[in-house]
């Protein structure tokens, strides 16, 4: 797997001119923005880094490179696991850079930050971004670089329509928002922040493992 990781890092380096552009954009937001800018920059950079790692699948598809990769000392399963490890590394590095930069700005500009909230929120953002990549990767493996964009648009459109549909199906006044708030507050108060984070992490881990299993199934069926 180490060889595959080295290959993908080498491929990502061919994009080395793109990274500074995204970093500059993020810096512009931090410089010109206010305290809230950090909440944009962290997901923005984390997502860019994550998507870059998924893009290595496209590099593998060009000129039948993937067929050759499968003749190297790797298996289809190792190939999939390596992509998830790479995605995880990408999101963590993206989060670390953006969190670091935004935190420095917060200190320099003496923003009044609730540090625990700031760290937890950005970590949650990082995990959500990783879960988004966990949707992207199997779709890309199944449909290829070009078609996967269309499939992803369709998937997210269906999700959006589904949410809107549920909202419209529920009769007006059926949900008592005041009551909901009380219930939610009761739940939040009964569990610690660590507990909430723990539950969230378990859900994310199950989701990621499920995604990896689907990706392995797709790779197993693939013919090169």
């Amino acid at each position: 797997m180490k060889g595959l990781l080295v290959k993908d890092f080498q491929l990502l380096q061919t994009n080395k001119m793109t990274f500074p552009i995204f970093i500059i954009i993020a810096l512009v937001f931090l410089i010109s923005g206010d305290q809230e800018a950090g909440f944009f920059v962290v997901p923005y950079i984390t997502m860019i880094f994550g998507i870059m790692t998924v893009s290595t699948v496209s590099y593998d598809e060009v000129d039948h490179s993937i067929a050759y990769i499968m003749t190297l000392p790797v298996t289809r399963k190792i190939y999939v696991v390596e992509k998830y490890v790479l995605m995880l590394l990408g999101t963590i590095i993206g989060w670390a850079i953006s969190f670091g930069a935004a935190s420095v700005f917060a200190v320099v500009r003496a923003y009044e930050l609730d540090w625990v909230q700031w760290i937890v929120t950005t970590l949650v953002i990082m995990v959500v971004m990783f879960m988004f990549l966990c949707v992207m990767l199997p779709v890309q493996l199944k449909f290829g670089a070009t078609n996967s964009r269309i499939v992803l648009i369709v998937i997210f459109a269906i999700i959006a329509i589904g949410i809107l549909g549920i909202k419209n199906l529920v009769p007006v006044g059926y949900v008592d928002s005041a009551h909901m708030t009380i219930v939610l507050n009761r739940i939040i108060n009964s569990v610690t922040i660590a507990g909430v984070c723990g539950i969230f992490l378990v859900i994310a881990a199950v989701f990621s493992l499920l995604s990896m299993k689907i990706s392995m199934g797709i790779m197993k069926q693939k013919q090169f």
Partner: peptide
């Protein structure tokens, strides 16, 4: 050696 395919041509 494959008739078609090798390492990524970007490398």
């Amino acid at each position: 050696v494959l008739a078609e395919g090798g390492f990524s041509t970007y490398l």
